[in-house]
């Protein structure tokens, strides 16, 4: 299911929290939703779900969410790890959430087993850890096997094994043709997980594109070449106006160009290459570059 957010806008009195955001979430892909603290990610998600009132609209396969029936077969959302009654058992919580789509008891048990909460199904979640709360929230979101999963910081509080499980699960979920929109502060994790990214800062859209396209925005992207004739290649590139720097013996780094271009030049001039590889910036580097000025709550300098 394709999600299209159009001109989403939200004011909190004098604060313009979300400023006319438009982006799409494509089916069959995991879309990472990134932004610094206070950038408006959670507010945007609430707007998309119709929980908050504001400008713009969100269409799910061309229709508003309220036009889909049952809604829980269309979208499953997990917005907070503590959205449950502390005295209502995990099983009863999911039975309640399964009412709209007529979810069977067997499916509730199946989902509890999937997220590893089967042994505490009859326990009250008031004593659950943050990670267990996340699992319960995820269980609620996937209960009706919806076409869209919308998850706000689902990896917070999870241990490394659970994070890896979540990554595999979400990738598999998207691979079946469903849409996944997931926000996270764990950028390294998001780099492994997301196919596309939507980046916002101070309520403004910074980027909405594929992960490779986003990473290529970094000023640090470069081509690394190792060759026994590295000096000759550097001179040749220089004669064509391409700058390079030496990075150890027989290795040069050429910023701002593709491996295809450099490979063609080397091949045309008979220069043997031992290595020709792209050096892309990490998601964290690109994210920090692009959102540096858009941080709502700035940190002080460390000594």
């Amino acid at each position: 299911m394709r999600i299209e957010a159009r001109n989403l806008d939200k004011h909190f009195r004098s604060v313009h929290a979300v400023k006319g955001l438009s982006f799409t979430v494509e089916p069959g892909r995991v879309t990472g939703f990134l932004g610094p603290n206070g950038s408006g990610k959670s507010t945007t998600m609430r707007l998309m779900l119709g929980l908050d009132s504001g400008g713009g609209e969100t269409l799910y396969d061309g229709k508003k969410l309220s036009s889909h029936h049952p809604v829980t077969r269309t979208i499953g959302a997990h917005l907070d790890a503590k959205f449950f009654h502390p005295k209502r058992t995990a099983y009863a919580h999911l039975r309640m959430l399964g009412a709209e789509a007529g979810i069977s008891k067997a499916r509730v048990h199946e989902v509890l087993k999937l997220v590893g909460l089967e042994s505490v199904a009859k326990k009250r979640p008031g004593g659950f850890s943050l990670g267990m709360g996340q699992r319960l929230g995820l269980a609620g979101a996937i209960l009706a096997d919806p076409q869209v999963l919308m998850l706000d910081e689902p990896a917070n509080g999870l241990d490394p094994q659970s994070i890896q499980w979540l990554r595999d699960f979400l990738k598999h979920y998207a691979s079946t043709g469903k849409s996944v929109l997931v926000s996270s502060h764990l950028l390294s994790e998001m780099e492994l997980l997301a196919d596309d990214v939507v980046v916002i800062a101070r309520g403004n859209l910074i980027a909405a594109e594929s992960m490779p396209a986003f990473l290529s925005r970094a000023t640090g992207s470069a081509v690394v070449v190792r060759s026994p004739q590295s000096e000759k290649l550097a001179e040749l590139l220089s004669s064509q106006g391409i700058a390079s720097t030496t990075d150890g013996a027989r290795t040069i780094v050429i910023p701002g160009h593709s491996t295809d271009r450099i490979g063609e030049i080397a091949f045309a001039n008979g220069i043997a290459l031992s290595e020709l590889s792209p050096r892309t910036a990490s998601l964290e580097q690109v994210f920090l570059e692009l959102t540096e000025s858009g941080q709502e709550y700035r940190l002080g300098e460390t000594s």
Binding site: R46, L49, G50, L51, L65, S66, V71, T72, I75, A77, L79, D80, K82, F83, F84, H85, P86, L97, A99, E100, G140
Partner: peptide
């Protein structure tokens, strides 16, 4: 009251937008 106190109102209104 319980819906607002424990945040489940957001689950309820996601499931039943009307």
């Amino acid at each position: 009251g319980h819906e607002y106190r424990y945040g489940t109102i957001r689950l309820t209104l996601t499931e039943f937008p009307k």
